[in-house]
């Protein structure tokens, strides 16, 4: 709020109900707190120029503060005031944003983008807790089974988690509104990218925190990063052709098989080939190529995935 927002006794009567009455009619007995909207905020509100989260605070306060409502009425012309009441009605109906959504808006993200991300299934608390638990356990195991050059188990596992997260962020497997999203005018690729960035940020962040639990390995403990990007980009690029389940499953499976082969064929105790300098370079090249391919295939995210179509054939025709 502005500096001229001042402390004051409670004069408001704000509460909402579910009867569909307008905001003016549904002011209840509860107070709005010991402060009032500043002149500048009131004028910005009247002009419809306040943006979240300041707008949410103003909405909540106006619903409960008769004095501020009177001041707003004095500021506004009748037409603009009706529009403001209508806006307030709509805002009162709107759900309070959840923790993640609110945080994203406070960080400057547009509220509609934050809502899209908040609906990402794998950004839910249960998924994040599971991912964190797996990583903590693998980091602990790597620390316990200390190998001389690199925490192999952790490095092998860590790239799979962002891949799984991204794969499950968009598609019929976990997104219940997948079919509605596909036929919506918003481009499917934009939704995929949005969620990929969000899930990657979270996944890589959790991986990074787990890496901090392995300080003895130095930079070698970060050798999961480029393979993680390569696997994620490859899984996404294959998705339009193979579907949102098979594509990441094959990519992840290929990674596991590749590691097993390198384990059985390697000589000496050094790091596995993917975690050497040459391996890291290869991973970076694969990530770049797959990202390019993904861009070329972006329009293929515009219709339902093959796996969804085939699955539905048997059950819902």
């Amino acid at each position: 709020m502005n500096d001229d927002t001042h402390a004051h006794g409670d004069t408001g009567r704000g509460a909402r109900d579910d009867t569909g009455r307008g905001a003016r009619d549904r002011i209840g007995p509860r107070g709005a707190g010991a402060w009032h909207l500043g002149e500048g905020d009131l004028r910005a509100y009247e002009r419809g120029e306040l943006t979240p989260p300041l707008l949410w605070s103003a909405d909540a306060h106006l619903a409960g503060c008769a004095e501020c409502r009177s001041r707003l009425a004095a500021l506004a012309d009748p037409v603009a005031l009706d529009a403001a009441w209508e806006r307030l009605d709509a805002e009162l109906d709107a759900p309070r944003p959840g923790l993640l959504e609110g945080l994203l808006v406070r960080l400057g993200m547009a509220d509609h983008t934050a809502r899209l991300l908040a609906a990402t299934p794998v950004l839910r608390r249960s998924w994040l807790l599971a991912v964190t638990a797996v990583l903590v356990m693998s980091a602990a195991a790597a620390d316990t089974l200390r190998t001389p050059d690199s925490p192999t188990l952790f490095l092998a596992l860590a790239p799979l988690l962002p891949l799984a997260g991204v794969a499950l962020a968009y598609g019929p497997a976990l997104d219940p509104t997948y079919e509605m999203a596909v036929v919506a005018p918003m481009h499917g690729f934009r939704l995929v990218l949005l969620r990929t960035v969000a899930v990657l940020a979270v996944g890589l962040g959790v991986n990074g925190l787990a890496t901090l639990a392995l300080p003895g390995y130095g930079l070698a403990a970060l050798a999961w990063l480029l393979p993680a990007l390569a696997l994620t980009a490859t899984g996404l690029a294959l998705m339009p052709r193979l579907g949102p389940v098979l594509a990441p499953a094959l990519t992840g499976g290929g990674w596991v098989v590749f590691l097993m082969v390198t384990v059985t064929t390697r000589h000496g105790d050094g790091p596995l080939p993917p975690f050497t300098a040459a391996g890291q370079g290869t991973a970076a090249a694969v990530a770049a190529l797959a990202t390019g391919l993904l861009f070329l295939l972006r329009n293929r995210f515009d219709s339902v995935a093959p796996a969804f179509t085939h699955h539905s054939h048997g059950s819902t025709l």
Binding site: P95, A119, D175, P176, E179, M186
Partner: peptide
Amino acid sequence: PGFHPDFTAFAFVDYVAILKELTDRA
């Protein structure tokens, strides 16, 4: 039709409205 079960009716329709490119909040 699938739903995000933790969404309210308003939040769910609001979500679909965003998919339909209604980005102006009010």
